[in-house]
């Protein structure tokens, strides 16, 4: 069964229409985002193939995109996905300590999910919030000026809330 539901198909068509004719390939990223959002937070091979087929581009080109951008995940993530920036400006501000604190609090390493499925952890390149470094992003929210303690507090708060 195609992972593209009729609603998703209508959305896809609207997205593709934003791009000039013959350059449909440009829609790869927004389509993948749409599919990832609606498809449970990660992209399977079938998802990627469906986007490739929809746009008429080779699967290899879609897979190059999904493996390049950390925003796309090829395996299930936790309910809260934590992306810690590890690029130079944040590193100078001490993101190493933050990352270490998060890893210890969660007990997982990069690309892993906690046993209860609540959190997943990842180290990413610059999140374009260098003025707030060290930063991490959870879902759509960026948390800045972090310290090891602040980072743990954020996670504790989310853990207490349970859901999203």
């Amino acid at each position: 069964m195609s992972p593209i539901t009729p609603e998703l198909k209508a959305r896809f068509e609207k997205i593709v229409a934003r791009y000039p004719k013959g350059q449909e390939q440009s829609a790869v990223i927004p389509l993948l985002h749409a599919l990832q959002e609606s498809g449970g937070g990660h992209l399977t091979t079938e998802h990627q193939q469906a986007v490739a087929d929809f746009l008429g581009v080779p699967m290899s080109k879609v897979h190059e995109v999904t493996t390049f951008y950390t925003m796309f995940s090829l395996k299930p993530r936790g309910r809260h996905h934590i992306s810690v920036c590890r690029t130079l400006p944040c590193a100078l501000c001490g993101c190493g300590d933050v990352a270490k604190a998060v890893r210890e609090r969660l007990g997982v390493g990069p690309g892993e999910v906690t046993a209860d499925g609540m959190f997943s952890y990842e180290e990413v390149e610059c999140l374009a919030q260098c003025h707030l470094g060290p930063v991490f992003q959870i879902g759509d929210t960026v948390y800045g000026d972090l310290t090891a303690d602040k980072a743990k507090a954020v996670i504790d708060g989310l853990a207490k809330q349970g859901g999203r």
Binding site: S60, K61, H63, E64, T67, F68, Y69, T70, E125
Partner: peptide, 9 residues
């Protein structure tokens, strides 16, 4: 189209 460059950095 069998091959691609995957990943980053």
């Amino acid at each position: 189209h069998e091959l691609g460059i995957f990943g980053r950095g």
